[in-house]
Simulated scan of single mutants.
Amino acid sequence: MIAVALLVVAALWSVVAPPRQLSWLDLESILGPEETAPLPAPAAPEDATPAAVATHPSFDVVRVTRGGTGLIAGRAAPFAEVEIMAGSAVLGRVTTDRRGEWVLIFDQPLSPGGVEISLTSRLPGKEAVASTEIAVVVVPEKTQAFVDPSDEGVVVVLTPRDGKGRSLVLQRPASSADLADGLMLDAIDYDQTGAAVLSGRAAARAEVRLYLDDAYLGTGMTSDSGRWIYTPAAPLAAGEHIARLDQVTGEGKVQQRIEIAFNLDLAADAARAEGSVVIRSGVNQWLVSRKLSPGDFHYIAVFGVHKDQVKDPDVVYPGQVTNQP
């Protein structure tokens, strides 16, 4: 429904050359209140003052069609001018309302490949303030052949600008969360040393036990919104791995289980330019590689769930924790 709504909106505005600004009420009428609920607040820079934190622009919604057009919404200081950049190009400029909310529809399509969407905001007489997060958008190459939308499509990931911390998957081609009643490994953020953060979804206030190659890693607890995050104590080794997620009851019984094979690629191309984004895709997997500075890389592995990855929860695996850890 979201994709259909975006296509209808894009068609309505296609006769207008520049990007258009909508109100927040317009956005809610298009996407609904669930899709326009504020995202988790981004972390502020360590040296930021309270006044500066209040004016940092942020994303709430990023939706992009396969054709590269889309809708972006967020927040900043009231009555500030917000500039939305796609790489080094200006995607649009909008002014926030009295509540600090803004909405932009753009019909100048993003090029196929990966691009970083970033924000800056400015109040009259003040210096510009940059967003602490960026949205990495991956638009597939155009093709005339029929493509199963579960195999190819747009990926949007909200991630810290400095590459430190976890990413949030906002959009991906496969709407596969229902295959395991919402149990998902959304993303693995890691750097060139293998230091990683795993994040995903499950039932609200549920316990998720994580295993790597049948070895118990640890337990993540979901929030009221059903999101969990886990940071391994030791770096992950490069190479092929199998991650297993068990959603368990309070008594320790496994309710849902998924297994995902992935390759932790630590190969860095030192010749790449800083700020570049390289995308590699596989079956229900996408790898975003960002070069932050010489020798400093941020990798984001994004996952969908295929029916073959949903496993029998009653099978007892080697190394499985069978009581409360």
Rank of each mutant, 00 (worst) to 15 (best):
V197A: 01
V154E: 03
Q108G: 13
V129S: 09
G194Q: 09
G163W: 00
D107A: 12
V147Q: 11
E141D: 13
R172C: 04
D191S: 11
G114K: 12
A145Q: 05
D162F: 05
S199C: 15
E133P: 02
A128I: 05
E141W: 07
A145R: 06
T143F: 00
L185R: 03
A177Q: 14
D189I: 01
F146G: 00
A145K: 03
L170S: 08
A196I: 01
T159M: 02
T120H: 04
V155K: 00
V115E: 06
P140S: 12
G114L: 10
V147K: 05
K142E: 09
T193C: 01
P112T: 02
V147N: 06
Q108M: 09
S111I: 00
S150A: 15
G200R: 08
I188T: 08
P160D: 02
A180D: 15
A187K: 02
K142I: 10
R166V: 10
V136F: 07
V115S: 09
T193K: 09
E152R: 11
L183I: 07
V154H: 05
M184P: 06
L119H: 08
P140N: 13
D162E: 13
E133H: 09
L119F: 04
D162W: 04
G200K: 05
V156Q: 00
T132S: 15
P160I: 01
D162G: 04
R161F: 05
L158M: 15
E141Q: 14
L158Q: 15
R201C: 03
L179H: 10
T159L: 03
V129Y: 01
S121K: 07
G200D: 11
S176L: 07
L198W: 04
G163M: 02
E116H: 12
P124I: 08
S150N: 14
E127D: 15
D107I: 08
S199N: 15
S175Q: 15
D189Q: 07
I117H: 02
T120F: 01
D181R: 09
V157E: 02
G194E: 08
D178F: 12
A135N: 03
V169G: 07
K142Y: 05
G113H: 02
M184C: 08
Y190L: 01
D151H: 08
V139L: 14
E116P: 00
D191V: 11
P140Q: 12
T120Q: 13
D107R: 15
T132N: 12
S111Q: 13
Q171F: 03
K164N: 13
A135S: 10
V156W: 00
G113N: 02
E152S: 14
P109H: 07
V115C: 06
P109L: 04
L170W: 11
D186A: 14
K142M: 09
A135K: 02
R161N: 08
A177I: 09
L110W: 07
K164W: 01
Q171M: 04
E141L: 13
V129A: 08
R166Q: 11
E127V: 10
S175W: 12
G200L: 12
Q108P: 00
T143Y: 00
G194C: 08
S176M: 04
A135H: 03
F106S: 11
A145D: 06
